[in-house]
C-alpha cells in the first residue's frame, strides 16, 4: 500500500514546476484523477482492512492463526471457491448459446432475448431468490406437475445444494450473457462468410473463427461471475443448506452479530489473497490480457 501511495505522489507533484518538461508531465497529470480515485476507493480501504486484521483488538496475528486452526473457516473458504467455480461454469454453458443467438439474429428474436436478460438483470436478487422458494416449494408448479403425472413421492428440491446453485446461476447469468454479448457483437460477420466461402462448414467456421474471437468474452464473463459469486451469501442462506455456507456469511456474522471487526477483516484478507492466487493461476494458463481482446 505504502509503495503505491508514494508512487502516485511524485506523479502529481512533478506536474507543476517545470514548464520545459510539460510534454512528459501532462500524461502523468492526466493519470492523477484516476490514481487518486483508486487510492481513495481501493488502496486505502483495503489497507485499513489489512491493518484492522492485525491490530483489532490488539497487535497480533492471532486472527490468522484462528482461521487456519479452526476447521470451519478453511472448509467454508474451500466451499466458497468450489461453489463459485460451479456457478461460473454453469453460467457459461447456459449463457453462451443465448449470447450467440442474440448476436447472430438481428430480428425480433434478438430484441426479445435482450429484453428478457435486461428485465432479469433489473429485478432485485432478493425478489428472484424468493421466487425460487415459490417455484420449487411444496405448493409450487414443479412439485405440482410431478404429482399430476403421478411420479411418486415429490423430490426434495428446495433447501439443497442444487437449489442454492440454481438460485445463484439465475442471478449471475445476465452478467455472463451481457459480457459475452458485448464481445460477440464486435465480431465481424464477414469473417464467418469468408470462412464459408473458403469451404468451411458452419461447425468448422464456428470452431475456428467465432469461438476463438469470442474467448475474451468468456474470460471477462468468467471472472466477473466468479468474483461476484465469491461474495454471495443471502441466496445460499435462503435456498441452500448450512453446508452451502459461503465465507461472506461468516464475515457478515462477525461484523454484524459479534462486532469482531478485526477477525472479520482477517477473514476478508484471506479471501482476497486466495482470490488473487486463483486469478494469478488463471492468468498463467489463459492470460488475462484476453480481457481486452
Amino acid at each position: 500500500m505504502a509503495g503505491q501511495l508514494t508512487a502516485s505522489l511524485p506523479a502529481a507533484g512533478a506536474a507543476a514546476p517545470a514548464r520545459a518538461a510539460e510534454g512528459q508531465s501532462v500524461p502523468w497529470l492526466l493519470l492523477a484523477p484516476a490514481t487518486l480515485a483508486l487510492v481513495v476507493m481501493f488502496v486505502l480501504p483495503i489497507g485499513y482492512v489489512l491493518l484492522l486484521s492485525i491490530t483489532d483488538p490488539a497487535l497480533s496475528i492471532a486472527h490468522y492463526k484462528r482461521i487456519f486452526s479452526v476447521p470451519l473457516y478453511t472448509r467454508v473458504l474451500f466451499n466458497t471457491f468450489t461453489t463459485s467455480l460451479t456457478v461460473t461454469v454453469a453460467c457459461l454453458l447456459l449463457g453462451y448459446p443465448v449470447a450467440y443467438v442474440m448476436t447472430r439474429r438481428s430480428d425480433w428474436v434478438s430484441t426479445v432475448l435482450l429484453m428478457c436478460v435486461a428485465v432479469c438483470f433489473w429485478t432485485g436478487f432478493i425478489v428472484r431468490t424468493y421466487a425460487w422458494l415459490v417455484i420449487l416449494g411444496n405448493k409450487g408448479p414443479v412439485i405440482g406437475i410431478h404429482q399430476a403425472l403421478g411420479l411418486g413421492p415429490p423430490p426434495r428440491l428446495l433447501f439443497t445444494t442444487f437449489s442454492s446453485t440454481l438460485g445463484m446461476v439465475h442471478i449471475l447469468l445476465p452478467y455472463m450473457i451481457l459480457a459475452l454479448y458485448s464481445v460477440m457483437k464486435k465480431i465481424d460477420p464477414n469473417l464467418l462468410r469468408a470462412a464459408a466461402s473458403l469451404g468451411a462448414r458452419p461447425n468448422a467456421s464456428f470452431r475456428e473463427v467465432f469461438l476463438p474471437l469470442s474467448l475474451p468474452g468468456v474470460v471477462n464473463g468468467g471472472i466477473l461471475v466468479f468474483t461476484i459469486c465469491l461474495g454471495f451469501f443471502i441466496t445460499p442462506i435462503l435456498l441452500g443448506t448450512p453446508k452451502d455456507m459461503m465465507i461472506s456469511q461468516l464475515i457478515n456474522q462477525q461484523i454484524e452479530e459479534l462486532l469482531a471487526w478485526g477477525f472479520a477483516s482477517a477473514v476478508a484478507v484471506v479471501l482476497l489473497v486466495a482470490t488473487s492466487v486463483v486469478l494469478a493461476v488463471y492468468n498463467r494458463f489463459f492470460g488475462l490480457d484476453r480481457l481486452w481482446g
Binding site: P71, L72, V76, P242
Partner: peptide, 8 residues
C-alpha cells in the same frame, strides 16, 4: 462452535 457444527 455452532456454525462449524452446522456446516459439517
Amino acid at each position: 462452535r455452532f456454525t462449524q457444527w452446522l456446516a459439517s
